[in-house]
Amino acid sequence: MDVLSDVVALMRTGRPISARISWRSPWGRVFPASPGSATFQVVLRGSCWLIPPGGAPIPLSVGDVVFLPHGDGYGLTDDPDGPLAASDCGPHEDPGLFTTATLGGTGAETVTLCCGYYLAPGRTHPTLAQLPEVIHLPTTLGRHPELRATLELLAGEIDNPRLGADTLVTSLLDMVQLYILRAWYAEQAAAVTKTGWAAALADPAISRALDVIHRAPADHWTLESLASTAGLSRAGFARRFTTLVGRPPLAYVTWWRLMTAARMLRETDASVGEVASKIGYGSEFAFGNAFKREYGIAPGRYRRQTCEETATQHNRASRTV
């Protein structure tokens, strides 16, 4: 798996939610902050305004995509000067994988697609931490055609769910997240970003090293082998990697192995010993010590705890948007 694929695989716990809302003027809602979540809004018909957590209102038109990766509160309205009614909508609740609703008054219609993920603390990739509070991808003819096509498929599945819709909607939501991140990082690369993950992913040498780490975390990586992959000297590679990624190369390898192990403990039935072997640890004891240093609890207890959290999440009462 490459880095962006891993970001999406790690970012979600439990299942996502999605809602297609037909808003009738006058309308306006404020969505409360939901720490540990990521949300995107898409305008399918009409126009509206996003009231961001900071800064001026943002006008949105058909095809515009807004991604809020940090769970910040925001408003959505047909009139930036109008009142905003309270809403309890958020990915910490579970209205079902997809739902539809009509809200507001009796005037002009705006249709939005709202989707969200719950993110468990400590399980997200650092790329997300460096994203801005709002990513706005406005409609521009010919730009992001894959994202537009995926959104059209997603809206169709939510409007008319048929056999296999659960799997299709979940997969399409992952695709949307990937296309949003890909588009944003491409724009950052075009802007010649100098530091951070946008620069790391745009740097051919560092990107190659990250790619092999993510594709084969169990390999016995050394500073020499990673520098060779990157085509740099050891000192030059270590300096550039640490500056852009925020961790020294081998520290990142260890961190990524343990993140991969945590995902395996959450999502598979592999034993703790099997997980240790698959991520490159020679013994279950060594793996257990490393895992406890990173997560504060032993692997077996972590698995039980996350299973309990998932069960609690699934048992929450359904509610309407």
Rank of each mutant, 00 (worst) to 15 (best):
L131G: 04
P26C: 02
E267L: 06
Y74K: 01
A270P: 05
Y74Q: 01
Y281P: 03
T102H: 00
A120W: 15
I158E: 07
A317K: 14
A190G: 05
H136S: 12
P145H: 09
C48I: 11
P217C: 08
W255V: 01
E133Q: 15
A86N: 15
A190P: 03
M11E: 07
A286K: 14
D2W: 11
F291M: 10
P59S: 13
D72V: 10
L137R: 03
L178G: 08
S207T: 09
E133P: 12
V253F: 07
S228Y: 12
H70P: 02
T320A: 14
L141C: 11
Y185T: 09
A216S: 15
E157N: 12
A165D: 06
M259N: 06
E294C: 11
V272Y: 03
R301V: 13
R239N: 11
L128Y: 07
A311K: 14
W197M: 05
G55R: 12
G54W: 14
P95R: 06
S271N: 08
F40R: 07
G90W: 00
E93L: 11
S207Q: 12
A218Q: 13
D159R: 12
D94A: 08
G164H: 01
H125K: 12
P53T: 15
Q305R: 13
A235N: 14
K292Y: 13
F98Q: 00
L128Q: 14
P83N: 04
G55W: 09
A155T: 09
G104M: 03
G107A: 06
G196M: 00
T222E: 05
L10Q: 14
R247S: 03
A205H: 05
S283F: 02
R15M: 10
V42R: 09
G14M: 02
T139S: 14
A235S: 14
L173Y: 10
V321C: 13
P204D: 07
L168R: 13
Y117F: 15
P83L: 06
D88W: 03
G164A: 07
T106L: 10
S271Q: 03
E187G: 11
A261D: 00
Y252F: 11
V169H: 00
P91D: 04
G273P: 06
P91K: 04
V30C: 12
V30G: 10
F241R: 01
T112R: 06
D78L: 07
T112G: 09
A186D: 10
A270C: 07
N160Y: 08
A311N: 14
G28I: 02
G104A: 00
M175R: 15
S277R: 15
G46W: 06
T268R: 09
P53Y: 05
Y281N: 11
L223A: 12
H92D: 06
R319H: 14
L68Q: 02
I158N: 04
S207C: 10
A155W: 11
L153P: 00
